[in-house]
Design a protein around this nucleic acid. Sequence first.
DNA 1: ATTCAGTGCATTGTATACAAAATGCGGAAG
DNA 2: CTTCCGCATTTTGTATACAATGCACTGAAT
Lengths: 224, 224
Amino acid sequence: MNEFHVDMNEYLPLRDVVFKTLRQAILTGELQPGERLMEITLANRLGVSRTPVREAIHKLEQEGLVIMMPRRGAQVAQITEKDLIEVLEVRLGLEEMAVRFACERMTDGQFTELCQAADEFSAAIDRDDLTALAQADENFHSLICRATGNDCLCGITNNLREQMYRYRIEHLKNHDARKNLDGEHKAICAALEKRNAEEAQAILYSHIENQQQSIIQMLKEKSK
Amino acid sequence: MNEFHVDMNEYLPLRDVVFKTLRQAILTGELQPGERLMEITLANRLGVSRTPVREAIHKLEQEGLVIMMPRRGAQVAQITEKDLIEVLEVRLGLEEMAVRFACERMTDGQFTELCQAADEFSAAIDRDDLTALAQADENFHSLICRATGNDCLCGITNNLREQMYRYRIEHLKNHDARKNLDGEHKAICAALEKRNAEEAQAILYSHIENQQQSIIQMLKEKSK
DNA sequence: ATTCAGTGCATTGTATACAAAATGCGGAAG
DNA sequence: CTTCCGCATTTTGTATACAATGCACTGAAT
């Protein structure tokens, strides 16, 4: 049945292409916090008209990656310490919830995937590959969420994680932190295997709490 | 220093006007689930061009009130039982979190406001005013969130509540349910006054759990 | 009678034109 | 020298025009 990939790049509206491009640029720091996003400039740079750019920027605004002031345009979101603490507080609660539900609902297949993600993180440490580290960590947490079977929960936590991506990646540059995270991932896997929600939740709590402290520390140093 | 209200209707972009209008129409059921939202039609009806309508629809999509299919337009979101359960599951977790934090952080002024909101709910029962009931209930929960001082948390929970507004209002038509809700509001206030997080959380849990059961019940009846 | 191709209409996606507001600069007045 | 007004420029907000796609209807062929 020679099912061929007639994808033809599978039509994506330009607004989504622009959206993804800009998001990537923001998350990688190519577009820095505070930088203005001017429609015409971006449109020219990307070779499209203002319309898709506008729509992409609006979408980014709702994701919390840019802030807009009426009649004054958009700029890459400056995350304050207060914002960060708020996001982390909520994220912590949601990820605890996720791991609790995952304990009850995770299938064997999903568990295997999760272990693989944890291993991929270890491998990325060995290869000293920062991008892969970020992706593996992202993936690990995302898999836990997906194991809850709750798409709503997945969507929200993914969004919160995304908002902090820029800061998490700084955290991951720290070699000691990497080792800690790696150990915690493994411990979470172990707790999940035993279906021990209490334990998993506790580990995840400190897992995120540690990151939180480290990121806030970093933010303070940067701002002074 | 005669600070006067030179508000002058405080310029709002048309897209936001349209957004609010459409949202209201969806929440009140004027636009029913499944109904198609066609840009030109709406633009004509509202007396604006397609541009603000498009932008409003996109915003509604990200709020979860409409769903879009590329090249096929938007329609008012059909909420399935699965969606509802997911949203309620997350909402429950977040509101528990909120009441816990509110216990620690709520100021006296905020507590007074909360009590007033609870009284307003009671008053709306006496007046048999459905709209006021919905608004008072909304307000009550929103105040608890705001008392956490966490804007991120507020934003997310408000959004989740909004997604269910249409169904909550059905629930509020039930006179027995009203009495229950009213009592629970009062009990939550009492627990918060004692700064008893455990108790407040427990009451809030059943408060939302009850609604959940009732709404799901209703949904099932509707779908058959 | 049913199915498939072709055609035309309805609707979204994108580009561009025009309007209105905000910012920055320069000059004049104090 | 400073401040304030006004103009020009930049940039967003809105409208409209054009392109491309999807869908329904018609008609013919099997």
